[in-house]
């Protein structure tokens, strides 16, 4: 994670009432939507722990929906997020759930369209900071403090080398790289010091055999849902 600065102390500028239960929830929705990167027809939210217990009084439900609609944590439309989701024909459901040994403020988000289901699990750690801990069953640790790329691919030799060389050619420094593996599928979380352009992103997408690639604020003019 990046170092603490004055923007964390006099900020975030946010919609209340709670940086962990409201602002953090918006960020979780934002980042989950960027990872999903499509238009869902239906979204199910499974709220765990303190999220499950106190979501109504903290507007966590509104915040999560506003998040997947791409609103910022200081957007005054958050209060009316359900109406906005309805207007965009996105069906929203909330459930209370036990997600196991995870942070008390954790949510499992299931996006669905006609083709498939897509799962993102994330926690709000306090002060508006978040951590995505699971993408489609792959264990990850994604804070979204940096421009970040998420890659899932059949595990084989040379991928890390290939990815680093593409980043080096693009002139973007890698801040950190984490790879986890499960059933021969690898998930890479790549944090960058700067953004890459669309051409580099497209080149990356076409030059490696990928199941999945997405950007969390890593491509210039990147759009959410």
């Amino acid at each position: 994670m990046r170092e603490l600065d004055v923007f964390d102390i006099l900020g975030p500028v946010m919609i209340g009432p709670s940086s962990s239960h409201t602002a953090g929830a918006v960020r979780l929705g934002n980042v989950a939507a960027m990872i999903y990167n499509r238009r869902p027809k239906k979204v199910d939210f499974y709220l765990h722990g303190s999220f499950a217990k106190t979501y109504k009084g903290h507007g966590t439900d509104l915040a999560l929906v506003a998040g997947i609609l791409g609103y910022a944590p200081d957007d005054e439309r958050i209060r009316d997020a359900f109406d906005h989701a309805k207007a965009q024909n996105i069906a929203i459901y909330f459930h209370e759930a036990d997600l196991g040994y995870v942070h008390p403020n954790t949510v499992k988000i299931i996006f669905e369209d006609d083709k498939e289901r897509f799962q993102v699990i994330g926690s709000s750690l306090g002060g508006g900071t978040i951590k995505i801990i699971d993408i489609n069953g792959a264990e990850v640790a994604l804070h979204a403090d940096y421009p970040t790329l998420v890659l899932q691919y059949p595990d084989k030799l040379g991928i890390i080398n290939r990815v680093s060389s593409i980043m080096a050619t693009a002139g973007v420094n890698i801040a950190s790289m984490k790879v986890t593996r499960r059933q021969k599928k690898a998930t890479m979380i790549l944090e960058l010091d700067g953004k890459i352009d669309q051409t580099t992103y497209n080149f990356l997408a076409s030059s490696i055999e990928l199941d999945y690639l997405t950007s969390v604020g890593a491509v210039e003019e990147n759009h959410g849902v």
Binding site: D8, I9, L10, G11, P12, V13, M14, I15, G16, P17, S18, S19, T22, A23, G59, L62, D74, E76, I78, R79, G127, G128
Partner: peptide, 11 residues
Amino acid sequence: SMGRIVAAPTA
């Protein structure tokens, strides 16, 4: 009331 504030240092 879910209005806009500056967390200083928290909400």
